[in-house]
Simulated scan of single mutants.
Amino acid sequence: METEATNDYKKARWQYHHNVNGTVVRTDVKKSPPPISSPMFMGNAYFVVTRAFVKHVMQDREVQKLLEWERDTYSPDENLWATLQRMPSVPGSIPANIKYDESDLQAIARVVKWGYHAGSIKDGAPYDHCTGAYRREVCVYGAGDLAWLLQQHHLFANKFDPEVDDIAIRCLESVLRFKMLGHDMVTDHF
Results as ranks from 00 to 15, higher is better:
residue 10 K to D: 14
residue 49 V to H: 01
residue 114 W to E: 01
residue 38 S to I: 09
residue 128 D to W: 00
residue 152 Q to V: 12
residue 172 L to R: 00
residue 117 H to E: 07
residue 170 R to D: 09
residue 45 A to N: 06
residue 59 Q to A: 11
residue 181 L to W: 14
residue 90 V to G: 04
residue 164 V to S: 00
residue 92 G to Y: 02
residue 180 M to I: 12
residue 100 Y to Q: 01
residue 152 Q to E: 08
residue 79 N to K: 14
residue 163 E to Q: 14
residue 21 N to H: 13
residue 127 Y to R: 01
residue 33 P to A: 09
residue 6 T to G: 05
residue 96 A to H: 11
residue 9 Y to R: 12
residue 133 A to R: 13
residue 57 V to S: 00
residue 186 V to N: 09
residue 174 S to R: 09
residue 69 W to R: 03
residue 45 A to I: 10
residue 82 A to V: 13
residue 19 N to V: 15
residue 11 K to R: 14
residue 154 H to W: 00
residue 35 P to I: 05
residue 24 V to I: 05
residue 54 V to P: 04
residue 4 E to C: 08
residue 179 K to F: 11
residue 155 L to W: 07
residue 70 E to A: 15
residue 8 D to C: 07
residue 179 K to I: 14
residue 158 N to H: 07
residue 119 G to L: 04
residue 118 A to D: 03
residue 68 E to D: 14
residue 172 L to P: 02
residue 23 T to Y: 06
residue 146 L to A: 03
residue 114 W to Y: 05
residue 112 V to W: 00
residue 136 R to K: 10
residue 129 H to S: 07
residue 179 K to Y: 06
residue 45 A to F: 02
residue 153 H to Y: 09
residue 15 Q to R: 03
residue 188 D to R: 14
residue 125 A to E: 02
residue 50 T to M: 04
residue 126 P to I: 06
residue 98 I to T: 11
residue 141 Y to R: 05
residue 12 A to K: 14
residue 150 L to W: 07
residue 83 T to W: 04
residue 49 V to C: 07
residue 106 Q to N: 13
residue 84 L to C: 06
residue 178 F to N: 14
residue 101 D to S: 08
residue 127 Y to P: 01
residue 65 K to P: 01
residue 115 G to R: 03
residue 59 Q to Y: 08
residue 184 D to N: 09
residue 64 Q to D: 14
residue 27 T to E: 03
residue 127 Y to K: 05
residue 102 E to D: 04
residue 137 E to I: 09
residue 84 L to M: 08
residue 106 Q to W: 10
residue 134 Y to C: 05
residue 10 K to L: 12
residue 75 S to H: 11
residue 134 Y to F: 10
residue 23 T to C: 03
residue 94 I to G: 09
residue 141 Y to M: 02
residue 126 P to L: 05
residue 175 V to G: 04
residue 77 D to A: 01
residue 170 R to S: 12
residue 118 A to V: 10
residue 77 D to W: 01
residue 25 V to M: 03
residue 165 D to I: 02
residue 20 V to P: 01
residue 49 V to M: 04
residue 133 A to V: 15
residue 170 R to I: 08
residue 2 E to K: 03
residue 70 E to M: 15
residue 78 E to K: 11
residue 86 R to P: 00
residue 149 L to V: 14
residue 29 V to I: 15
residue 50 T to W: 03
residue 76 P to Q: 06
residue 132 G to I: 13
residue 108 I to C: 10
residue 102 E to H: 13
residue 185 M to R: 11
residue 167 I to Y: 14
residue 92 G to M: 03
residue 105 L to V: 13
residue 86 R to Y: 01
residue 133 A to I: 15
residue 126 P to N: 06
residue 32 S to V: 09
residue 57 V to D: 03
residue 43 G to W: 02
residue 138 V to F: 07
residue 109 A to Q: 06
residue 158 N to A: 10
residue 54 V to M: 07
residue 143 A to G: 06
residue 90 V to N: 01
residue 60 D to S: 07
residue 64 Q to K: 12
residue 68 E to H: 12
residue 50 T to V: 09
residue 166 D to R: 12
residue 159 K to P: 05
residue 58 M to V: 15
residue 90 V to F: 06
residue 179 K to M: 05
residue 149 L to R: 09
residue 78 E to N: 10
residue 49 V to P: 01
residue 181 L to S: 10
residue 71 R to W: 13
residue 34 P to K: 06
residue 60 D to K: 04
residue 63 V to P: 00
residue 98 I to D: 11
residue 111 V to L: 08
residue 126 P to V: 08
residue 140 V to L: 08
residue 12 A to Y: 07
residue 92 G to A: 06
residue 55 K to W: 10
residue 170 R to Y: 10
residue 45 A to T: 12
residue 165 D to G: 00
residue 26 R to I: 07
